[in-house]
Simulated assay, not measured.
Amino acid sequence: MSAETGRSRQLLARIGLTLLDDAPERWRRIDLQCRAVADVHDVTLTVLLEDGSQPDMTLPPHVVDDLLEVRRLTYRPDMGAWFSMRYLLDPPAQMYVKYNYDWDPKWRSWRSPIPAESWARDLEAFPRPEENIPDWLAERIAEANRER
Rank of each mutant, 00 (worst) to 15 (best):
W82E: 06
E25I: 07
K98H: 09
S112A: 12
N100S: 10
E130H: 05
D66C: 08
R148S: 12
G52Y: 04
P77E: 09
L48D: 12
V63L: 04
V63M: 03
T44A: 14
L67V: 04
T18C: 12
Q54H: 15
A81I: 02
P105M: 07
D31L: 10
A81N: 04
D22C: 09
A125Q: 10
I141R: 03
R148Q: 14
G52L: 08
A144E: 05
E143F: 03
M1R: 00
D22V: 01
A116W: 01
R111F: 09
A36D: 00
A138I: 03
T74C: 15
E147P: 04
E143L: 14
L17W: 11
T18F: 06
D102G: 10
A116S: 14
K106P: 00
P61S: 12
S84D: 11
I114G: 04
R71W: 03
D51Q: 07
A125L: 08
L67P: 12
R9H: 11
P113F: 01
E143S: 10
V64I: 14
D135H: 01
D21F: 05
Y101V: 02
L59W: 02
L73N: 01
A142H: 06
D31K: 01
P91S: 07
P127E: 07
D135N: 02
L123E: 14
C34M: 14
V70Q: 08
R28M: 14
L67E: 08
R9Y: 06
E139R: 09
V37H: 02
N132I: 04
I133D: 06
W136Q: 06
P55F: 07
T58I: 12
G6M: 08
Y75K: 00
L73S: 06
I133F: 09
R128I: 03
P134L: 00
D39A: 10
P60F: 00
V43S: 06
G6A: 13
D65N: 13
S112K: 13
A116R: 03
L12S: 10
G16T: 00
R140S: 08
